[in-house]
């Protein structure tokens, strides 16, 4: 819970894969006063369906309202608020660190501990990727700050429920 008494929720939305869908969904968030912390979108195994994963701040009743508002969009086929205990979340972050040859060794140790990957090295810089949940990523970024981060680019969080829970696009009665 943050200082405004808000929690972080991860919401999965299955939508028809058609032009303008992302703007319909993100527009709804902003006009109903929700702040999107991250958003990731991509096609699914069914080419006609895309899956949007949104991390948003709110409380239980505001999230209930959000889910019901999402269902009013004709392009939305299913919405799920993930239970954190039963969900695996990942984001991919690419980080470029200013690193001289002397600093490289220390950096490599951090890379190893966090199971990150080095994707590019030059005399002055080291670029790496890390995947993980938000906490792991922030922990690593904090350590890297000592070396001087020159660039960060991150995807939004994506999430998958554990085990047999499947989010399919079959429509159901409200």
């Amino acid at each position: 819970m943050n200082k405004n008494g808000q929690n972080r929720y991860t919401v999965g939305v299955l939508v028809s894969n058609e032009p303008g869908v992302l703007s319909r969904v993100s527009g709804l968030f902003s006009r109903r006063g929700f702040n999107i912390e991250s958003l990731a979108v991509g096609p699914t195994q069914d080419q006609s369906v895309s899956r949007i994963t949104i991390v948003v701040l709110g409380n239980d009743s505001s999230i209930e309202q959000l889910v019901q508002q999402l269902y009013k969009l004709i392009v939305v086929r299913k919405v799920r608020v993930y239970d954190p205990a039963n969900t695996v979340e990942r984001q991919l972050v690419m980080i470029k660190v200013a690193a001289t040859a002397a600093e490289r060794e220390g950096l490599m140790r951090i890379v190893e501990i966090f199971k990150a990957k080095v994707v590019d090295v030059t005399r002055e810089s080291l670029s790496l990727t890390i995947t993980g949940d938000a906490d792991k990523v922030s922990a690593m970024i904090e350590l890297l700050e000592d070396y001087g981060i020159t660039e960060i680019v991150r995807t939004g969080t994506v999430a998958l429920q554990r085990g047999n829970q499947i989010m399919n696009s079959e429509l159901f009665d409200l």
């Binding site: 269902y71 009013k72 004709i74 086929r77 429509l171 159901f172 009665d173 409200l174």
Partner: peptide, 19 residues
Amino acid sequence: SASHPTMQLRPVGAALERY
């Protein structure tokens, strides 16, 4: 669109029985 959840709220026939 007929099967969209927000369209099912005045059901008829078998859908009414389920409702």
